[in-house]
Simulated scan of single mutants.
Amino acid sequence: MSDASVGDGREQPPRSSFWRDNGLTLAFGGAFLVVLAGQALAGRAGFNEDLAVDGLQQLTLGEYLMSSDFAVDVTENWQSEFLQFFLYIFGTVWLLQRGSPESKPLHKAGTESDEEQRVGAHARADSPRWAGTRDWRQNLYSRSLGAVMALLFVLSWLAQSVAGTAAYGEQQLRQLQPPLSWGAYLVSADFWSRSLQNWQSELLAVAAMAILSVYLRQRGSPESKPVGSSHTSTGVEG
């Protein structure tokens, strides 16, 4: 062991590596691809069963991946997830939950001061460049996370509506009924049923996380308070 590592008795930071530094993104990104592949295989099997019942030719995996049925199933889940994060990001600016690490401290409701946010004259040497500006760039950057989540929600919801129109139209044709236009599908029960069944589950999950984290703990997780923190400790992460 070198003298540098023991000379002052301080613990040395762990060595940096690409895999360690990006483990959270890589793990969840990889899991996403695995689950998406599983959805494609299971979805194709179920879709082909329906085609067989109707006496129609079954689809190959490639054909199913390009189908509107697969597209609408994927995008209806994406839009609900992006909606969840958009609402959560903007909601937690003002909304508080006493005792939850998912909430800001109770005295910090709102957009906070320039000093607290390290913008303008209070920006530091390592702050993002636009944080130190005093014009539209700071305003845009200071709301960029929520704005991008909102944009992704709108785009994925639009994609769901287009794919859903095509998928619903195919079902109508198999039943010898006329398909709906895009505008008509937007106000149909099928479109809103697909959307609302996902929205309610995402909102329930956020509400459950906010209140359960007041009383329950997960040692070592930044989504939990330290195990020994009181139930009333707010905005404290472990």
Rank of each mutant, 00 (worst) to 15 (best):
L186Q: 14
A163I: 03
V6Q: 14
S142F: 11
G183M: 02
S230H: 12
Q138A: 10
L56R: 11
R143T: 06
L186T: 10
F28G: 06
Q58M: 13
W136V: 10
W19Y: 12
G120Q: 07
P101D: 01
Y185M: 06
S233T: 10
S230P: 11
F28W: 12
Q197T: 15
G120V: 04
S100Y: 01
A208G: 05
A166G: 04
T111A: 13
S224R: 05
Y88V: 09
L140G: 05
G9K: 04
S229L: 05
G120Y: 04
R134Q: 09
S233H: 06
W136A: 14
E116I: 07
D73T: 08
M149P: 00
K225Q: 05
L203S: 06
F85H: 14
S201H: 12
G110W: 01
L24W: 11
A45H: 10
Q160G: 13
S142Q: 15
S181V: 02
L216Q: 09
T133D: 05
R217D: 01
V227C: 09
L41A: 14
W130T: 08
V162N: 02
W192I: 03
S2T: 12
V206I: 15
D73A: 14
L96E: 11
S193G: 15
L203R: 00
W157N: 09
Q175G: 08
G29V: 00
L158W: 11
P13E: 04
T232S: 15
I211A: 13
S5E: 14
D8A: 10
F82H: 07
G38L: 01
Q12R: 13
S2H: 09
L140T: 12
L152P: 07
G169D: 00
A159Y: 08
A210E: 09
Q160M: 13
L41P: 04
S161L: 15
S113Y: 07
D190K: 11
D8Y: 07
G29F: 02
A109C: 05
Q200C: 14
L152D: 01
L155P: 00
Q138T: 07
N198R: 15
F28Q: 15
L65A: 04
W199G: 03
W157P: 04
V72G: 02
K225C: 03
Y141A: 09
M209Q: 13
T60F: 06
R217H: 05
L203W: 10
N48D: 07
W94E: 08
A125K: 10
T232L: 15
N139H: 13
L158E: 09
I211P: 04
L173S: 03
L173W: 00
S103D: 03
Q171P: 00
P13K: 04
D54G: 06
Q97I: 12
T234C: 04
R134N: 10
D50Y: 12
L26C: 06
Q197N: 13
W19A: 15
I211K: 08
G183V: 04
F85P: 03
L212V: 13
N22L: 02
L51N: 05
M209N: 11
G235C: 02
E116V: 10
F82N: 06
Q160D: 14
R194M: 13
F32Q: 08
V53D: 14
A125L: 09
Q57I: 06
L216K: 09
T232C: 09
L83Y: 04
G62H: 00
E49H: 12
G55L: 00
Q160V: 02
L140Q: 03
V236W: 01
T75K: 06
A166T: 11
V93F: 08
H107Y: 10
V119G: 05
